[in-house]
Each structure stands twice: as structure tokens, then as C-alpha cells.
Amino acid sequence: MSGIRTAGDLVLRMQLAKSMKIDAAKQYVADKLGVKPIDLSDSDLMAEIRAKYGFGRSFDLNKSPKGIEAKFNIARKIGIKINSVELFMARAGLNKEGA
């Protein structure tokens, strides 16, 4: 699907975390983003959506969320737990379980 050029990373996350088949995974992500499943592979549209929600892009704009920062936004908007985000919060003392 072209990864972060579109919504490929988000769809893959639903397969890996929830064992969703391709159509179900696309539908889930599309519903969360308020678009149609077919839109998820539109790199032009998805660039706008990724910028709007701070999901990270191939060519990041200055002062835009990157890497782990973007994954915080993805976890919140898509409604999934991302391991590295949970670990970041714990190790930075940002949650109850934090050091």
C-alpha cells in the first residue's frame, strides 16, 4: 500500500495487532479517519490527513511530529496500543507505571 506515503502502516498495524484480514483492516482504519477504504491508498489525500493528525510523512515538514511522536498520535486516533509508545511513557515517567 506504500506505507506512510498512504495509510499502509496503519492497515498493517491492524493486521498485526488484531489479526484483521485486509478488507476489515482497511474498513477499521477508514472509519477512524472518516474516509472510504479506497481513499487509504490515495497518497495525495492521505498526505493531507497524515499532516492534519500528525501521523508522520515521508517528507516531514519542519516542526511536525516524527517517529515516536507520530506514533503517539496514531495510537490515540486509531485506538490501539503501540508497544514503543507504552514503553516511552513508562520510561519517561509519563504514566502511573513510570519510573
Binding site: G3, I4, G8, L12, K66, G67
Partner: peptide, 10 residues
């Protein structure tokens, strides 16, 4: 990799 990447890394 996890600090810098956005996509899932296995």
C-alpha cells in the same frame, strides 16, 4: 528504530 520509525517494525 522504534524511536525514529512510524511504521510497524518487527
Amino acid at each position: 528504530a522504534q524511536l525514529n520509525a512510524v511504521m510497524p517494525v518487527l
